[in-house]
Computed example of a mutant assay.
Amino acid sequence: MPTVAPTWLDDQQQHTWRTWLAVAELLPRALDAQLQRDAGLTHPAYVVLAMLSEAPERRQRMSELARAANQSQSRLSHTVARLEERGWVRREKSADDGRGNVCVLLDEGWDVVRRVAPGHVAAVREGFFDALTADQAAALDEALTAVLDRLDPDQSLRRGR
């Protein structure tokens, strides 16, 4: 079998890739710190609460919630269990078919979202958008959408817009 030489990243690609890796590590860490400070929440837990707050009647099937929150079913189950312990959500059987589970955002959880969201939005702006011009933000959106379309061509894994 012939050996194929790898096509290495050029200098610009290497720089872009390493910059992306650093941002992908540092931005979630900064958002986690803000959420821990303001509400004792992890970023993945906040995303679950936020997705539920936007869902009709503040309820969503667990499988749909996992996709909306970009979490595996297993990770979502653990996240929801911690949120249940705090009295912010509850799981119940689906009224549609009785087989699936639905996660419901309770009033106490809704209060947390309303209280924490302004600080979270400020942290996202400060850590991400404030560093970009409007043209850079538009170009980044276009570039990230192209990558996401490659990674999730049937749009089955992505968060809704």
Rank of each mutant, 00 (worst) to 15 (best):
residue 22 A to V: 04
residue 12 Q to H: 13
residue 50 A to S: 15
residue 151 L to A: 14
residue 123 A to Y: 00
residue 140 L to F: 09
residue 77 S to E: 15
residue 136 Q to D: 12
residue 74 S to Q: 15
residue 48 V to I: 01
residue 37 R to W: 02
residue 45 A to H: 13
residue 142 E to M: 14
residue 12 Q to L: 14
residue 66 A to T: 06
residue 3 T to G: 10
residue 25 E to W: 00
residue 78 H to N: 15
residue 141 D to V: 08
residue 94 S to I: 09
residue 98 G to Q: 11
residue 30 A to C: 05
residue 83 L to N: 09
residue 79 T to Q: 07
residue 118 P to I: 06
residue 11 D to N: 10
residue 42 T to H: 01
residue 121 V to E: 04
residue 3 T to S: 10
residue 60 Q to C: 15
residue 133 T to E: 11
residue 161 R to N: 06
residue 27 L to F: 11
residue 109 G to V: 01
residue 124 V to D: 00
residue 144 L to S: 03
residue 115 R to I: 09
residue 94 S to V: 10
residue 58 R to M: 08
residue 128 F to N: 07
residue 151 L to I: 14
residue 91 R to L: 08
residue 82 R to T: 13
residue 152 D to R: 10
residue 89 V to D: 00
residue 80 V to R: 02
residue 65 L to D: 05
residue 44 P to W: 02
residue 48 V to E: 01
residue 125 R to L: 08
residue 97 D to Y: 11
residue 159 R to V: 07
residue 113 V to H: 03
residue 110 W to N: 02
residue 71 Q to P: 02
residue 104 V to E: 06
residue 118 P to E: 06
residue 94 S to W: 08
residue 54 E to K: 04
residue 121 V to C: 03
residue 39 A to I: 10
residue 123 A to E: 00
residue 24 A to W: 08
residue 64 E to P: 04
residue 91 R to Q: 10
residue 35 L to G: 10
residue 127 G to Q: 12
residue 27 L to W: 06
residue 12 Q to R: 15
residue 145 T to K: 05
residue 161 R to H: 05
residue 92 E to L: 12
residue 119 G to R: 05
residue 149 D to C: 11
residue 98 G to D: 09
residue 161 R to Q: 04
residue 101 N to W: 07
residue 83 L to H: 05
residue 7 T to H: 14
residue 56 P to S: 10
residue 109 G to L: 01
residue 132 L to H: 08
residue 21 L to C: 11
residue 65 L to A: 06
residue 108 E to W: 00
residue 112 V to C: 02
residue 135 D to R: 11
residue 10 D to W: 03
residue 138 A to L: 11
residue 36 Q to I: 04
residue 54 E to T: 01
residue 147 V to M: 13
residue 116 V to E: 10
residue 159 R to W: 08
residue 120 H to P: 01
residue 106 L to V: 01
residue 18 R to D: 08
residue 31 L to S: 03
residue 43 H to T: 04
residue 74 S to V: 14
residue 83 L to P: 06
residue 142 E to G: 13
residue 81 A to E: 15
residue 50 A to R: 13
residue 98 G to K: 08
residue 131 A to R: 06
residue 128 F to H: 09
residue 66 A to V: 07
residue 129 F to N: 11
residue 3 T to Y: 07
residue 67 R to H: 13
residue 16 T to I: 15
residue 119 G to Q: 07
residue 48 V to M: 01
residue 72 S to K: 13
residue 10 D to R: 04
residue 56 P to Q: 09
residue 62 M to Y: 00
residue 96 D to Y: 05
residue 37 R to N: 02
residue 32 D to L: 08
residue 122 A to W: 02
residue 62 M to E: 05
residue 86 R to S: 03
residue 137 A to K: 04
residue 114 R to T: 07
residue 9 L to Y: 12
residue 36 Q to W: 05
residue 153 P to S: 02
residue 75 R to M: 14
residue 78 H to R: 14
residue 9 L to P: 08
residue 39 A to F: 08
residue 20 W to H: 09
